[in-house]
Write a protein that binds this DNA or RNA. Structure first.
Length: 153
DNA sequence: GCCAACGTTGGC
DNA sequence: GCCAACGTTGGC
């Protein structure tokens, strides 16, 4: 099983939205690197749900991959803000998976806390200038974040 | 294929 | 609101 970190702005779609929805297609990723990581995801993989562009930023909970990778339907929808005229149904450019709600952390594991701990030095989200919305996470890092949150997975 | 200009992300 | 760090676009 692999581990990941997925970023989302809580004002747009946060962990509470996922909890309410139960399950959500992770549409709208329009970055090739992030897309490639999503293509590597397998059913059962776990992801840290990270809140970005908020005060304070940090990991808010856990989500689980519950579908295989399939074409992002919003790329074909003309009215969607994610519409991509260069994409075709025969050769879709953008792919996604569905995430299922797993848990909300009682206390947000702040980015500040991750940066303060040398154990997380290699974690991509801690590095300067990383805007990637989907990143792989080492199992040890994943476990430690859960531990900091007092969350047993 | 280079690279300047532009747009976006996201912490601060 | 600022701006660093990217990614993308398009002229050449």
């Amino acid at each position: 099983m692999d581990h990941w970190l997925i970023k989302s702005e809580p004002d747009v779609f946060g962990i509470d939205h996922l909890k309410k929805a139960g399950r959500e297609p992770w549409s709208g990723v329009r970055n090739y690197q992030a897309r490639n990581f999503m293509k590597e995801m397998k059913i059962g993989d776990l992801a840290l749900f990270y809140h970005s562009s908020t005060q304070p930023p940090g990991v808010a909970g856990i989500a689980k991959v519950v579908s295989k990778t399939y074409p992002d339907p919003t790329q074909f929808q003309k009215k969607s803000e994610y519409f991509d005229p260069k994409s075709t149904e025969e050769k879709p450019r953008w792919w996604l998976v569905d995430f299922e709600y797993v848990a909300t952390f009682t206390d947000l594991v702040k980015l500040e806390a991750l940066k303060a701990d040398p154990f997380f030095n290699d974690m991509i989200v801690c590095k300067k200038g990383t805007r990637l919305s989907i990143t792989p996470v080492e199992a040890a890092h994943f476990k430690r974040v859960c531990k900091l949150a007092g969350c047993k997975i």
